[in-house]
Amino acid sequence: MSDSSREDRDRMKEEYKDHYRRIRDAKEKLRSSSYAKKAGDAVRQMNADELLNSVDHFLGKLRYKMASIESKLDVAMDDILADDEQKQSDLDEEMKKEKAKETLRQIKQEMGMLYDDLEQQAEEMNVKKTVGPQPDMTSDSTPET
């Protein structure tokens, strides 16, 4: 093969490659323009009133769900607050009972100490008991009949 025929063949090869590249690019442009045309047609065919109605319907459902969720939340919060108030009143009542028991215990303790003080003072004054068991009397010294 001669150099000129080889050059002609390489030149033709490059022309074919270029030709096929242009065909491939044209097909890609056609494909993308057909997608754009379909999208544009779909947008043009859409009825604005129907679209707005469907959006309004969706928003209405959304508002209804939000209102029902808020009302459920309010009911739950009211129940929780009522339970907390009941627990607090129960705790307050329990604390009052404990405080009353403690006060009663302190009073009894103070009365016991007071009683012990009175007995000690009575012993110092040599006073005889007339009520209750007498510590000086034994079972041997019972009155005889």
Rank of each mutant, 00 (worst) to 15 (best):
D83C: 04
K129C: 02
L91F: 13
Q134A: 13
K17E: 12
M46D: 11
K38E: 10
Q121G: 02
R22A: 06
R21F: 05
V75S: 08
D136G: 05
Q120P: 00
K65P: 00
D74A: 13
D92F: 02
T130F: 08
V127H: 02
K108M: 05
I69E: 15
H19K: 13
S34M: 12
T145V: 14
S5R: 14
A122N: 01
L51M: 09
D78V: 06
N126R: 05
G132I: 01
E144G: 06
L51G: 00
R21E: 13
E119N: 13
L118I: 07
L62C: 09
R11Q: 12
H57K: 07
G132K: 00
R6T: 09
E50P: 00
V75E: 11
D8G: 03
V131S: 04
M66W: 08
Y64E: 14
Q86G: 05
M12E: 15
L52A: 14
D25C: 01
Y64K: 15
E93F: 06
E7S: 10
D18R: 05
D140Y: 08
A36S: 08
Y64F: 10
G132W: 00
D3E: 07
I23L: 09
S33P: 00
K99M: 08
D8R: 07
E28H: 00
M95H: 08
L91E: 15
K96I: 01
E123W: 04
K61N: 03
D90N: 10
